[in-house]
């Protein structure tokens, strides 16, 4: 295959993903209901892709398109099922008979804190979030979480001041707001979690002496001379240093 053909072949193979498929090529269809209106869409698409196929152009409800940002919160029901389900539109394939709406925003008030001045103590959560005492352990938040986190458990851990547990259980939170929207006690879970993680990140570990030393060395100019010499070197000399460094890397990164 010639050089030119390689790139042409790749572009051709990718084209359905980037430019969309032709109607004639679609073999499987699904009916979905966007805010009550029926649309027939290709069954292989995510909710987000399907809505775009149907003609919606996102301003809200679309961010990273990869499951990290929490912008595309979607709630839906399936025909014949009373359960109200939640999903990230970019990470969920459409299903026949899906009735859906997107929630681009969840109204939430965030208390302000100063990480320097907040005490790392049992009662800190309740001081900023007195409403967590209203948790009745109904577990609706957990069932609403599209990341499958144990949301109610971390609120319970917050009630007893367990920063570590809050951090571990909430770490994968994408702050989509579904928990807060569904909570009968009107807790804004993801802010509670954010507070807990920051406090644990700041106070849960001893200060790293090696890092502190490195920072103070840099400020003292310990590496200035080495850099001065490096910057003066010509490309060949730099290539040699680089090669040597690469050649010796195994003894430093083994067991990586």
């Amino acid at each position: 295959m010639s050089k030119k053909d390689i790139m042409g072949e790749i572009a051709k193979a990718n084209s359905s993903v980037i430019k969309g498929v032709d109607k004639s090529e679609i073999k499987h269809w699904a009916n979905i209901y966007i805010m009550g209106q029926r649309y027939e869409v290709p069954a292989d698409l995510t909710i987000m892709q399907a809505m775009e196929y149907a003609g919606f152009r996102f301003i809200h409800s679309c961010g990273c398109r990869a499951g990290f940002c929490g912008a595309c919160s979607t709630i839906y029901r399936l025909k014949g099922d009373y359960r109200l389900k939640t999903a990230m539109a970019c990470q969920t394939r459409v299903e026949e008979g899906m009735f859906l709406v997107q929630l681009p925003f969840s109204p939430a008030v965030k208390p302000r804190w100063n990480i320097e001045k907040t005490g790392y103590e049992d009662g800190a959560f309740l001081a900023y979030f007195p409403e967590i005492a209203r948790c009745v352990s109904c577990n609706t938040c957990t069932k609403a979480c599209p990341q499958d986190l144990q949301v109610m458990d971390y609120i319970q851990a917050a009630l007893r001041g367990d920063f570590k547990k809050v951090s571990e259980l909430s770490f994968d939170c994408i702050q989509c707001g579904m928990c807060a929207v569904r909570c009968p006690a009107e807790i804004v879970h993801y802010h509670v979690a954010q507070f807990g993680r920051e406090m644990y990140g700041r106070y849960g570990y001893p200060r790293n002496a090696v890092l502190d030393k490195r920072v103070s060395d840099i400020k003292k100019g310990v590496y200035d001379k080495e850099f001065k010499d490096l910057v003066k070197k010509n490309k060949d000399e730099l290539v040699k240093i680089y090669k040597d460094q690469l050649a010796n890397k195994d003894k430093f990164i083994k067991g990586g």
Binding site: R134, C135, V136, S137, Q156
Partner: peptide, 13 residues
């Protein structure tokens, strides 16, 4: 490993 309030103090109930 995970437990919740025993149920004694639920203010909303």
């Amino acid at each position: 490993p995970n437990w919740n309030c025993c149920g004694a103090v639920f203010s909303l109930s």
